[in-house]
Simulated scan of single mutants.
Amino acid sequence: MQQEYKKYIEDYIKLFPDLNSEEIAFMNSYLTITEYAKKEFLFKSGEVQKEVGFVCKGLLRRYYINEKGNKITTGFINENKYATDYPAFIRQKPSKYFIECLEPSIIIKLPYDKIQEGYSKFKVSEMYGRLIAEYVLTVQTDRVESFLFENAEERYLNFIEQNKDIINRISLSHLASHLGIERQSLSRIRSKIAKK
């Protein structure tokens, strides 16, 4: 298993082709890798997230609990994506979200203090940090705008288009919650599309 872990970390570092040997050594010195079982949490609401997770293998969902006690799914995180509540992470404030594994998962962790140290030491690290932040912001903005400018059917079709790799790995209940509709409404949309 250690060999497999080593490969995951090597593959992760390859995502940053502009790093020099000093920067790679620095990154290697702090990256850790953790296995999670299905239903285990990367972090829970009320906790301060000390590390950003990068998913090597597995599938997670981000959700919050509303005033009625319902779990509202706000996102799914699969392979090669970052598992984080980024605004809370950057401010080191308690998160309002839970991030839960829907499948057994292997996650690389990047500690907050080491990320900040990398930014101050290396210009390239700062650039990659900005690119990651921009990606996270874009994903969050796209979700908000989908509720403003699309109806439920359009949200469903766009979700399928953008998530072909995970659509068969998530439950209809989680998907309906993510789309902001009841499960029965999702079933109606699906059968309507199937008839086209």
Rank of each mutant, 00 (worst) to 15 (best):
G75E: 12
G46C: 02
R62W: 11
A37H: 15
K109E: 13
Q3L: 13
I72R: 04
D11C: 01
D85Y: 08
S177W: 07
N28V: 06
I166S: 01
P17M: 06
D85W: 11
Y86G: 04
P17G: 02
R62G: 13
I77Y: 09
P87L: 13
A176F: 04
E134R: 07
H178R: 06
I72M: 07
G180P: 03
E134P: 02
I65K: 09
I13E: 04
P94C: 04
L179S: 00
K123Y: 15
E40M: 03
G69Y: 10
Y64I: 12
R91L: 14
T74Y: 08
I72S: 02
N66F: 05
E22I: 12
N80D: 14
Y128Q: 09
K50W: 05
I33G: 02
R169S: 01
K71I: 11
L42Y: 14
F43I: 05
Q2F: 12
S21D: 15
R155G: 00
R130M: 07
V144C: 01
N28F: 10
D113E: 14
S29D: 13
Q49A: 07
R188W: 09
M127Q: 15
L19N: 08
K195M: 07
F149H: 04
N78I: 12
R169M: 02
F98K: 06
D11G: 03
I166K: 02
I132D: 07
R61E: 10
S105I: 10
K195P: 00
T138D: 12
K38F: 07
F159E: 00
S191W: 10
A176H: 04
K81W: 15
D11I: 03
I77S: 03
K68D: 15
I181L: 10
L157P: 00
S185I: 10
Y64Q: 05
R183L: 12
Y5K: 12
S95D: 11
F16N: 08
R183F: 10
G180T: 11
G118L: 11
S187R: 11
S120H: 15
R169G: 00
Y119M: 11
Q49N: 04
G75W: 07
A83H: 04
I115Y: 07
K96H: 14
T73A: 03
E47M: 05
K7Y: 04
